[in-house]
Amino acid sequence: MNMLDIIGPAMVGPSSSHTAGAVRIGRIAKKLMAEKITEAKILLHGSFLATGKGHGTDRALVAGLLGMDVDDDRIRVSFEVAKQEGLSFSFGSIMLPDAHPNSVKLYLTGESGKKLEVVASSVGGGRILVNEIDGLTANFSGDYPTLIVHNQDQPGHVAEVTSMLSHKSVNIATMQLYRDGRGGKAVMVVECDQEVPEEGIRWLEHAEGVLKVTYLSLA
């Protein structure tokens, strides 16, 4: 928390968790896609489902998927903007086990056909947490440039990623590892102090055993 969390942000109301947080979730999902989103299936959980309409959570999520920030005057009319910009969306409900009350699951398709599944929650004061990417655990806040690497669970991948980052002079802020079972699918979530250069990401994408690389750039 810093001073601009005490006074601020400048945001479209009415709720920092249900509106501003929802915009941020959409916006971070759009950044993770790194291309224009053409289709979005949005499933609301818990309090997002119960009081989301009255708080504009639905319009806020769509606004974020269009790349709007929390203080964008067009959030209120984001459904109309989505129509103009060719984003088709639908809403539904979901019961996510053990999830934070303000959570949402997004199924996204990009203009190139790229697919992405994201589960995220709005955890208070407009701050968010991305909980899952493509069905695998990934806990990060979106406050740092974040590299998410899905790979086969086999020796050497962590070293590959960390040596690439050190080679590019990127300092690691936090690093987490998860896997669905020994020798199965694993995921590395690396929050960085600097942006990871494009060629580093390309290189990783072609490394053996790497299934998918998703990158959240804040630039």
Partner: peptide
Amino acid sequence: ESNACMKKIVAAPTAGSCGVM
């Protein structure tokens, strides 16, 4: 009211209390 009507405000410290400051 502006906050409840999805207009831009400054949370201070929160959106619900944005009118006081």
